[in-house]
């Protein structure tokens, strides 16, 4: 991007022969202005009418295949405890209503925020005495889709929990941190340039309204962390580890940023 030359800088540069090794700008923690609440748009607003139609019709939305698997997992007894999700939580339609809209949430045991996926695994480990689901595994995505569906149409409601505050702020910083060989932050694209075209594709605002999503690119369903990993590898950064605290912090900030927006799970995205 070209920009106006700064006169003061020119004078300095003229005087100095700069060797490449001396070129040393500090990594920028940018102050890109966040999107005003009334200007926020779901990723579905940026996709084609066909993709929106696919999301709107449960009979043709392929993500519903995972939701149905999740429904089975909910009812199936498992683990040493021989207990199903339903044995404790009853009807998901009642007990899980609004739950996905409130994650990540603070976990008192670990004194850290946990994502919904992590919460499900904590439940499996402690209450069902079963092995946790592997990140991005079919059952992990299936149960997350099923639980997520129970919040469809509800507003994203991050918990008002003081203990989350430092993690939320860390997530905000990460969102603004320029990363990777291409030296771009999340905010560079998704706060400052949303609606613009990157290689012909519109840049959405990056609101986590529909996860897990069925991405046409993936030809399958995937988690928010998988999508974040895509972005990080896209700017040639080293992605955070699955279930790392950094990813949870970013998820926390994204939830706060999307507060009040409507849950669409399971969404379709290109």
């Amino acid at each position: 991007m070209e920009a106006a030359v700064r006169p003061a800088w020119i004078g300095l540069a003229l005087a100095v022969l700069v060797a490449a090794v001396a070129v040393q700008p500090s990594p920028a923690q940018e102050t890109v202005r966040p999107i005003a609440p009334q200007d926020r748009l779901s990723g579905s607003a940026f996709m084609s009418a066909e993709a929106r139609a696919l999301q709107a019709d449960d009979a043709s939305n392929p993500a519903m295949l995972w939701v149905k698997d999740g429904e089975d997992i909910w009812a199936r007894k498992t683990g040493v405890a021989e207990r199903s999700c339903a044995d404790c939580h009853g009807e998901a339609g009642a007990s899980m209503k609004g739950v996905a809209a409130r994650y990540p949430a603070f976990d008192p045991a670990s004194q850290k925020p946990v994502t919904l996926d992590q919460r499900i695994n904590i439940c499996r480990t402690i209450n069902q005495k079963a092995e946790p689901f592997a990140p991005e595994s079919q059952p992990a995505l299936a149960i997350a889709s099923y639980v997520g569906l129970q919040s469809r149409g509800m507003p994203i409601t991050p918990p008002d929990d003081k203990r989350l505050k430092p993690f939320l702020e860390a997530g905000r910083s990460l969102f603004g941190l320029r990363q990777g060989q291409l030296n771009l932050s999340c905010a560079n694209c998704h706060d400052a340039l949303w609606g613009g075209k990157l290689g012909g594709s519109p840049i959405p605002q990056a609101h986590p309204t529909g996860y897990p999503i069925y991405r046409l690119e993936w030809q399958g369903i995937g988690s928010l962390q998988r999508r974040l990993r895509n972005c990080m590898t896209g700017v040639r950064a080293e992605p955070f580890a699955p279930n790392s605290i950094e990813f949870t912090e970013i998820e926390l900030y994204l939830a706060e940023r999307a507060k009040g927006m409507t849950v669409e799970t399971p969404a379709i995205r290109p």
Binding site: G199, G200, S201, E217, W218, N230, C231, T233, G234, P270
Partner: peptide, 10 residues
């Protein structure tokens, strides 16, 4: 057919 800019690990 346009190409998605942000593909998996591209």
């Amino acid at each position: 057919v346009t190409i998605a800019a942000c593909t998996e690990d591209s």
